[in-house]
């Protein structure tokens, strides 16, 4: 493969230009809808799983454990197919709609919940026991103590892991192409893949790949920023008397 051939295979500008409009107007919104919605639902379910995982009630702990084991242990494709094909007819009976898109979001959310639940659990459990004790000693109930004192601290500590999970969701959203979506429901990968299949040239897929990187690379840097900020702490605003104290120190011999 000479260099011109290489360029033509991966970076054929005409083939890219053809697909870029639909990548941006159809693929990008769909990918974002899939990732953001399943991210939000995953966080809500994940918090529920985390709270259940540390509950005193053994049945709740067991339910959370089994759920997490199953949804973390299956390949994403398998979960997506089982949920959409398995639940598709049920949903159609109830709502009369055979749109697989919501089922795709549901499958992504259920998987995300298992991972996010574990992230939240580790964060919550990393908060020192004294925090819960101090809150209870003030007269807060267990629930209020968790809500006001323990969980907010736990979430802060796992923000980097949470953003990583969101990056994974952006990438995993491509897997719902298995569901056979309408043209208007296609996400970034499917649009690039279709164009590549039609033209026999890889450039549309490369364009899709670049768009993914445009989404995920800033997020990876956000992780690093948050991580650094959490480790070194927020720069404290100088109080006037602190500034004065510094000047005072300088004046000492």
């Amino acid at each position: 493969m000479d260099f011109a051939q290489f360029l033509d295979t991966f970076f054929n500008w005409e083939a890219m230009a053809q697909v870029i409009p639909s990548l941006l107007t159809v693929g990008l919104p769909n990918t974002l809808i899939l990732a953001v919605l399943s991210g939000i639902i995953g966080c809500v379910l994940g918090m529920l799983l985390a709270i259940m995982a540390i509950a005193r009630n053994a049945v709740l702990r067991w339910i959370s454990r089994v759920y997490t084991d199953i949804f973390r242990g299956l390949p994403a494709v398998v979960t997506i197919l089982i949920i959409s094909i398995g639940l598709g007819p049920v949903v159609k009976d109830i709502t009369g709609s055979s749109n697989p898109y919501p089922l795709g979001i549901m499958a992504l959310s259920l998987m995300a919940a298992a991972y996010i639940g574990e992230i939240f659990r580790s964060g919550i459990q990393s908060v020192e026991k004294g925090q819960l004790e101090a809150s209870r000693a003030l007269g807060f109930s267990y629930g209020s103590s968790m809500r006001l004192v323990v969980v907010p601290q736990g979430i802060r500590r796992v923000l980097p892991a949470l953003v990583n999970q969101f990056i994974a969701l952006i990438k995993d959203s491509s897997l719902i192409y298995f569901l056979g979506l309408l043209a208007s429901q296609r996400e970034i990968f499917r649009i690039g893949n279709d164009a590549t299949a039609n033209s026999g040239n890889l450039s549309p897929l490369v364009a899709a790949a670049l768009l993914y990187l445009l989404l995920t690379i800033p997020l990876t840097h956000l992780v690093n920023y948050i991580d650094n900020r959490l480790r070194t702490g927020r720069p404290e605003k100088k109080q006037p008397d602190d500034a004065a104290a510094l000047i005072g120190k300088g004046a000492q011999p």
Partner: peptide, 13 residues
């Protein structure tokens, strides 16, 4: 009943 702890246990957030 107010309680004060060895490790202070202030809420850092």
């Amino acid at each position: 009943i107010g309680m004060v702890f060895q490790q202070f246990n202030l809420f850092p957030h």
